[in-house]
Design a binder for these strands. Structure first.
Lengths: 220, 220
DNA sequence: TAGATTGTTAATCGATTAACAATC
DNA sequence: TAGATTGTTAATCGATTAACAATC
């Protein structure tokens, strides 16, 4: 989603098959959690309660993607998790390229949630000569941004993360010839039609929060 | 959204007055950018084109919050920026508390976009004795998480950021007695009715991206 | 069977778009 | 004035909710 947003606001990317996709990730996580707790079946009511989503919404979302439960019993957590992974496409691992090895880039390389969910950052790029050649996580080396396009092709990478300053983001995006880009730069990105962009804009989120806090306190 | 922010999916938080709020931040940034370029007036068409939003949407969004243009001329960038800041509540600075001084926490403290937009991280907390007492950014010291609640009250802080592991997030949220929480932990948060939560879930975003990439390539 | 819960329909709600009269 | 662009209406589109028959 380019959620102009939720999420984030990317420029040309395609129409999203609805917010249901985002919730699919939440159902997956919840199903995994319940499995780990030894729970075999979860009803739409239980899944929804844990996530703050109505049971009708849960059933509709899951049905929409062909994930079925058993009447009277609910959804088998193991099947549901496996099924959602297949729907999302994370029933295999995805190599990821990262552009920008600043504070945020460093945090993303070390983010445990990515690896645990099937994403491996396998290449890191920066323009800063002082960073190029630096060891990353003990297993990678920061490469020059000028090589990015070539390396992405060579490694068969389809996903990229942009964690560079806003002024550099557009040119980095142009060189990031991947199928999908997760953009953390606070700027809209113009990309070819066949590239999907999801933007995560930290300042926008914090500003939305401030608005909510004020709006909420005024209405009391 | 509690974006779900969008974004994300937070548990009890109130209904959001629509995605228009998120776009307000984008209009603000664009208006500031245009001002910096010496542009006095911007039409809804120009604002929209720069952001990938239709001109009708721009006019409706701005009108909804009482921001008016001049027929035949467009919106005066300076007035628009000032007006949106007032609507959002960022016509003043906001002190922010940060819980969790791991990789992500460190990146957020140094994130230039926050400071530039009126947010000052004025207190940082962690449970790890090895981190407590550490200098942050040359101007702060990591404080013990046990003191968080008390310190937030003493400093009059209304905004908090949670950047701790998922297992710890719920208890941290309970101690974070702020009006609004920006949650980076990949877990739903249950908070009192008068606390707003926006969740930013990095894994969910990357999973949505993978789904989009696949969906997009299948439809060709 | 009785009890529980799905899958799906119809109704509602909300957000977006198209169009154009108003007006600077 | 003529040209441009807003503000707003009505139409459309999409997502959510409520309800319940189907069925395990």
């Amino acid at each position: 989603m380019a959620r102009p947003g939720r999420k984030g606001g990317a420029l040309p990317s395609r129409p999203v098959p609805s917010p249901a996709v985002t919730r699919l990730s939440l159902y997956l996580r919840q199903a995994e959690l319940m499995m780990a707790q030894g729970i075999e079946f979860a009803s739409s009511e239980e899944l929804g309660r844990a996530l703050g989503i109505s049971s009708a919404q849960v059933r509709r979302d899951l049905g929409m993607f062909g994930h079925h439960g058993l009447r009277g019993q609910g959804y088998r957590c193991a099947d549901l998790a496996r099924g959602i992974r297949r729907t999302i496409g994370t029933d295999r691992r995805w190599p990821v390229a990262l552009a920008g090895f600043g504070n945020l880039g460093r945090a993303l390389v070390g983010y445990p949630g990515f690896r645990a969910r099937g994403f491996d950052i396998v290449a890191v790029f920066d323009v800063d000569p002082a960073k190029i050649g630096a060891r990353v996580d003990g297993r990678l080396v920061v490469e020059p941004a000028a090589r990015m396009s070539e390396r992405i092709r060579a490694l068969g990478i389809q996903l990229g993360i942009i964690a560079v300053p806003a002024v550099a983001a557009q040119s980095v995006a142009a060189a990031m010839t991947a199928g999908g880009i997760l953009n953390f730069a606070p700027t809209p990105l113009a990309v070819p039609d066949d590239v999907c962009v999801i933007s995560v804009d930290l300042t926008v989120e914090l500003e939305s929060l401030v608005f909510l806090v004020q709006w909420h306190s005024q209405r009391k």
